[in-house]
Amino acid sequence: MKHPRPNQVVPPLQVVTGKGGVGKSTFAAALALKVARTGRAVLVVEMGAPGGVASALGVQPTKHGVPVVSSCGVYVAYFDGEAALSEYLLRFMPLKGLMKGFFAHPLYRAFVNAGPGVRELMAIGKVRDELLGLSSGIPQWDLIVLDAGASGHALQLLRMPAATAKTFSTGLAHREATRVAGALADPKQTVVHVVALPEEMPLEEAAEVVEQLRGPLQLPVGRLVVNQCRPPAPEGAEAMVGQLEPGTEAFVAARRALGWLTLQEKGIGALEQRLGLAAQRLPLLATEFIGVAQLEQLAAAIPGGPS
């Protein structure tokens, strides 16, 4: 089990991933809210297009890379890999006037399409730039939460910088890939949180993701979060359900609830043992709808500091 030491540095880049549909974006937004409540400047970045974070926080970023502030003080932006690549090249290349034609040229398009990972690399690179304050000259953010999407996609995103550093042996892309890969692998700068639900498949996938991060990817693992956990049933619930008449509404409801609880406890227990990492449980909320009020509840339930 890992306990944050009191003087431990909070890694400024907090990446969130997990199986599709487990509430990654909800957790990302709640984590950002928790940090924002301590007076720090927080940006949540979504990849490709505005998604669950923007909708939970009630904002609509309309332009790549332009943060929009929500009513609770958290900033949200989405980064598009191809736009980030053009920006990056424009920064380093001479003859800026000609670059528009270059970006439209079929050969450049082919490189962007065929060079796997170029977009992903540039999107993550832009997150780094934001932390360093490259666009405005001074760092604006204390912390960036990156909603990296479903685990398969997120692992690819996180693997890319190291992989592209090898593919592109020279050139700007090589320089950028090396820089980003170094930052991702540094536990002082980056941490990856893995989110699950208290159900078999999402817990299994979370275990696999953590093992991938620790093994082949060598990236720092942070929290193991289990969303939508149910409180334990009171003593004697099993026996009581056994006495209800099968087929009645109460019987079906109670048996189902006990079944969920069993899966939850068995699953989380097995996961913690397999990974040697304590799961952080977030409560099941009364509604499926997620807005700022719900995020406040979850933020309050997130243990410890923001690392």
Partner: peptide, 17 residues
């Protein structure tokens, strides 16, 4: 275009692609 691609992605990469 080739020169820019080489700057961006490296000469070896451009040849390989």
């Amino acid at each position: 275009v080739m020169r820019q691609l080489e700057r961006a992605f490296g000469g070896a990469t451009v040849r390989e692609v």
